[in-house]
Design a protein around this nucleic acid. Sequence first.
DNA 1: ATCTATTTGTTGTTTTAGACAACAAATGTG
DNA 2: CACATTTGTTGTCTAAAACAACAAATAGAT
Lengths: 409, 409
Amino acid sequence: MQSREFVGRTREDVRQFNLSIVLRMLHFSGSVTRSQLTSISGLNRSTISDLVSELEELGLATETEGISKTSSGRPSHVVSASDSVVAFAVNPDIDATTVGVVTLGGRVLTKRRILTRLQPSADQAIEIAAKAIQEMRAELKPGTKIAGVGVAIPGQVRLADGVVRLAPHLNWIEAPFGAKLTQLTGLPVSLDNDASLGCRTEFNFGAARGFSDVVYIFGGSGGIGGGAIVNGSQLRGAAGYAGELGHVRIADEKQSDYSGLSGTVEALVRRDDLLEVFRLDSATDEELAAEIDAVRRDKTAKSKPARKLIERQLESMARGIASFVNIFNPQVIVLAGFLSSLFEFDRERVLAEVKANSLDASSEAVLIRSAELGSDLLMIGAAELPFAKLLARPSQFEFAEQKRRVSSS
Amino acid sequence: MQSREFVGRTREDVRQFNLSIVLRMLHFSGSVTRSQLTSISGLNRSTISDLVSELEELGLATETEGISKTSSGRPSHVVSASDSVVAFAVNPDIDATTVGVVTLGGRVLTKRRILTRLQPSADQAIEIAAKAIQEMRAELKPGTKIAGVGVAIPGQVRLADGVVRLAPHLNWIEAPFGAKLTQLTGLPVSLDNDASLGCRTEFNFGAARGFSDVVYIFGGSGGIGGGAIVNGSQLRGAAGYAGELGHVRIADEKQSDYSGLSGTVEALVRRDDLLEVFRLDSATDEELAAEIDAVRRDKTAKSKPARKLIERQLESMARGIASFVNIFNPQVIVLAGFLSSLFEFDRERVLAEVKANSLDASSEAVLIRSAELGSDLLMIGAAELPFAKLLARPSQFEFAEQKRRVSSS
DNA sequence: ATCTATTTGTTGTTTTAGACAACAAATGTG
DNA sequence: CACATTTGTTGTCTAAAACAACAAATAGAT
């Protein structure tokens, strides 16, 4: 008999859980009135009062007797997530490493993008991140509590120990990112795949908010990543590698993807191919979107090769989506990165192709939409990793020491 | 803000939850000693004592001062799931409808297979099931409590209202199976897809026991079905259609499956094709397995066409599995029906093909194995539907009335 | 300006279920 | 047969949610 499943619950668990739901409401909505907390949770007024007091004492929430626009009656106190609880977010990528500070309320306080040479080694990225964190830490307001460091990795991450198994784009193999960054910063570090975090963030704050079953597909220069929300919780898999939707085979073609698999979505829907047809060396997602949109509007012969490529990619993408619809029966599919541009190129056609390649029942109610969150997505997503641990057991969470020591370097 | 997620917990919830874990342990293991319950749950001895007493009073558990082989010390009481709590299980199929009675302890008390003409209508199947249930109900020991009726459907089921959306094999479309069977029997009826239930049962009692992330693929005469366990809970999707693993596209081929989709696993791995190459009109899984095994052993030229077909199917199956490995990163893949025979034909090759078509990290630890549970699989699986509701809130569950009335028909 | 209805915050009390401690009961062992 | 060990039982303790009563703060009506 497995033991994990059959662990009993005590009164302390109830308390932790209720503290957790209150803090989660604050985290996801910024600020909430006490009467809202009461009605949504279904708990008694006095219980909510008690819980909020405890969160205040823990330094996790602040209460203001602000204005709460209701019809009549005594106005309710507004409770907010404390701005003095923060997490560091790190996102190493091919040409730069981004580091930011995110508050428990979801605001990005600072963000720094540190350019590197192309394909930095893991050790280089770790040192850059550690340095930035140390500097930013010194600038924090006194009394600020640090929940930890969250890292979004463009590759496969073993969740158990924070080792980057493979990041083909960066050419990292078996890099113990988490352990080393912990060593350099003295802070607890959690890692996850960037697309998984993107999925989770769109689910928490963006286009997939309010749904319970979500498929997220992200297209970037490093390939196609994905994530899924299943019955309200993130798809992780045994070791954390789940959600590699780009590496699903959909055709016989020989062309292979960045991981060497052929006929996959990632092999057939390539950002580089689009750049090539537009004769661009590199482009931001906005620039690429503009090019694609220009093709959409221009119906003359001149844009034919580009149009054909876009349509071919769009069709491959739709085939992949159709399989995901059959597998997950999601309420919504969120497309991010340049996939969103492919979708906007011809929404009707994408929808039609998806329907044609999936079961009627599964596809009848599915929504397809573009991602909503922009450049702060990965900062907020990465910060969610340490915050998740805090949110799970608010009164037992131990913050990193805030005694700053003079760094020797 | 979604409301469901943020509902607070009360002391009553704790009680229900603890009653639930105790009853679940009894359900999954048959019988357990009180000391085991204590150590596994982590609850206090006196609490377990109290919980067991309540379950006894509810008629859900029985306690015997039996022999518990421990080293020394006072022997512990053995607690078992009550045999007088049962559920009906129903499984309509193309040529017969099977109805059974299953105890909370997991024993199949009775099973009846009622032959029908080929492709019976839903109404016919419902009437057959209702009649069998009524007869079996009359034969139950007095005092037996009925948790409800669970139905395993070879097709897509809308979980919310128990409507069979599509069962291509049976040619059922939009059949309100649940409502009608409830009407005829007066019992609460729950439905689910047969492969989903198969998955769940292998997870609870069979080849996938003890894992948290499972992919299950079933091959039968009606096509290829599937199911998945994600982080310990069943993949359902928005409406309950998730897990249609057979309808995932893996190749360009034109050949289409029973639902009209082309190039899918179901289109390329067909039981009928195997029967044809063996010149069989029909065959049980055992007979088919024997044929396939004969080919395996016979290396002469004579069996060439069969061997080629088997190998082609095996390869397509492996391609599908590889995609599922990338998507779910499961600990184990369970193959059932004739897929298990394909696997046994050449385990090494299936494994090699899966590895070749999936990411190294995702596939490195994955196990592939054949299903363990035999003919009672769907009976136990279907019964799990009503039992699940009982297990979720033991002291609030309302059993069907046991006052038997003389049936008018 | 005052009164009323309404809603919310606060405080003290009640209830419930798990934890704990002490003791009795039932086994194996030397 | 004394002893150690484990388990069941019983009475008490404790923490946390519910509850009830009252005070406070608003909008709207007069």
